[in-house]
Write a protein that binds this DNA or RNA. Structure first.
Lengths: 156, 156
DNA sequence: TTATATGCAAACGCTTTGCATCACG
DNA sequence: CGTGATGCAAAGCGTTTGCATATAA
């Protein structure tokens, strides 16, 4: 049941081109603003906030309206290219979802924000037990894991 | 390692008295406002927002300032009596933590909000594997589980 | 008596909205 | 061309802060 080989499905980073292609495939217009947001996301190494995308775009001479950043992120979320994470601080951030479109979770570096996807490491199985004992009919779960990435762990 | 018997540690609900006692033990003043917040929390059946506490207090003729509600919730969080949950919608809510002061997670009813605590069901163990494979030094994790409680599951 | 906690109102930060304009397809 | 997307600015929320006042211990 546990797909051990699906653990650590790779860095949650992608090129802006991939984003635009996916948007096109989903039937959305490939606009200048969306390209700018896609490029800004491509520059991010880890999780990012709407604010970061906004200023990344500005510093590239590809300014986008604040509202458009939010609208684009929502769109990308719908398409499954990014996903919201709630940081321990309570902040809302986003991470790219790499290639895997399946149910998965994120392992986020608490220093640099770099994130990797992790597959279903067997939590579903654990939760079956919880369901039995609690009587709840479990519908969904969210797991967010925080720690230091290899680079940040060695470099103090 | 897996404490199967600690699954479903009981309803995350308590009487206002327990809250006040714990606050006193922690060396905080037992004020009228905190009593009002404690009572409002006691009325909640599941997760609750600051806004709900505010209006619950008002409808009891024990009005509290909005700011005080936030300050009290932060305090109760510090003491470990309540905990923030990020609902799937992105909303911030709180749940009581019942008796257990250990590391735990919450199983929240997505209809009525009722929540029960679940102990460390073995996720720590799973994450050791993830740490090995990913190279990350895992520091913390948050698991939030949503579903229908027994009552809501049977009553459509 | 004195440090703590409260109330109030204003400030804040993030996110959304309405609406006229723009541009992708 | 026509519809969907954008920009702008204003509104909306939830949350925090500063400060004078009240109050628990």
């Amino acid at each position: 049941v546990v797909a051990a080989d699906r653990i650590a499905t790779g860095d949650d980073v992608f090129r802006s081109g991939e984003i635009m292609e996916a948007l096109g495939r989903a039937g959305y217009r490939l606009t200048r603003a969306r390209r700018a947001v896609a490029e800004a996301i491509g520059e991010q190494r880890g999780h990012f906030t709407a604010e970061q995308i906004l200023s990344a775009a500005q510093s590239r001479h590809a300014a986008v309206a604040r509202a458009t950043v939010f609208r684009s992120l929502d769109l990308l979320d719908e398409v499954g290219l990014v996903e919201r994470v709630d940081l321990p601080s309570g902040e809302h951030a986003w991470v790219g979802c790499g290639a895997s479109r399946d149910h998965h979770h994120h392992l986020v570096c608490s220093r640099c924000g770099r994130s990797v996807g992790i597959g279903d490491v067997g939590i579903g199985q654990l939760l079956e037990g919880v369901a039995l004992r609690s009587g709840y009919r479990i519908e969904s779960h969210r797991l967010e894991v925080f720690g230091l990435c290899p680079a940040c762990a060695t470099r103090p």
